[in-house]
Design a binder for these strands. Structure first.
Lengths: 131, 131
DNA sequence: ACATTCAGACTACAAATGTAAACATAACGT
DNA sequence: ACGTTATGTTTACATTTGTAGTCTGAATGT
């Protein structure tokens, strides 16, 4: 699953600011730099140059593809959100919980990070798993 | 709970390398710089100076306390592991899953990051929660 | 054709991080 | 008393990250 090419160049790490840009593009793609900025600059208090830098870095990291559209570029994610999210989750679980998910879950439970909705959802998922 | 003083100076972020040092001290404390190194330098391929730098940074960030022991120092965590782990977990859940734990759980489930043991444990915790 | 404009590319620069060497100083053996 | 050693402190330096300004060239309006 995921990563069809088999090439798998050591996926360069994506920073938090870069991740914010990815989120916008995962939400809708392709978008121009200006559009991305419209969706971010207010929230993060960034200026367009900042967004452009981040886009460029993401392209150079292989996380985004560009596609010329007249004078500007359209940016599209190459890295899939589920891959990113999976990697980051695994990373955290490995680092903080010795790779085991249960202690993470316990922590979230204790810190009231679990809503009733979450709990219901998780029960449903557990039921799925046991089938 | 946790953080008894009420002072709560914006806890400076602990980097990954620093975290590795904290882990060692959470495992056993207090320890000297050399002892910490004995527990880390091999695994991380670090030299003693590196460990000392990290220890110093952690002290300056308020995550470790020092206690003189003859000519050297003994280092003890001030930051509790559960606090750190809680903060980091919440951080991830917020950033990647809009603060909801269920999607994280779903991801771990999908990526086979859940062992049978994990699942059993989580079921137990869920039962707890519902009491 | 020419000036304006708007996009991406290049450059900048401070803070944080990873990694470690150099320095200073206090204790200890002889 | 003195050199050696063990420790912490200071300094160093490359890389990554956050944040943004400047440059250059192509499209566009007139």
């Amino acid at each position: 699953m995921s990563s069809g090419t088999g090439i798998d160049k050591a996926p360069e790490r994506i920073s938090e600011a870069e991740h914010a840009v990815m989120e916008v593009l995962w939400h809708r793609a392709p978008q121009t730099a200006v559009e991305v900025c419209e969706n971010l600059c207010d929230a993060r208090d960034w200026s367009i140059p900042t967004v452009k830098t981040l886009l460029a870095r993401l392209v150079s990291k292989g996380a985004l593809a560009t596609q010329p559209d007249g004078r500007r570029f359209l940016y599209t994610p190459l890295l899939e959100r589920s891959d990113y999210v999976g990697t980051e989750s695994r990373r955290l679980v490995d680092r903080l919980f010795g790779g085991r998910a249960a202690p993470l879950f316990a922590h979230l439970a204790q810190s009231e990070a679990l809503s009733a909705q979450d709990i219901a959802e998780i029960e449903r998922l557990l039921a799925e798993l046991k089938k």
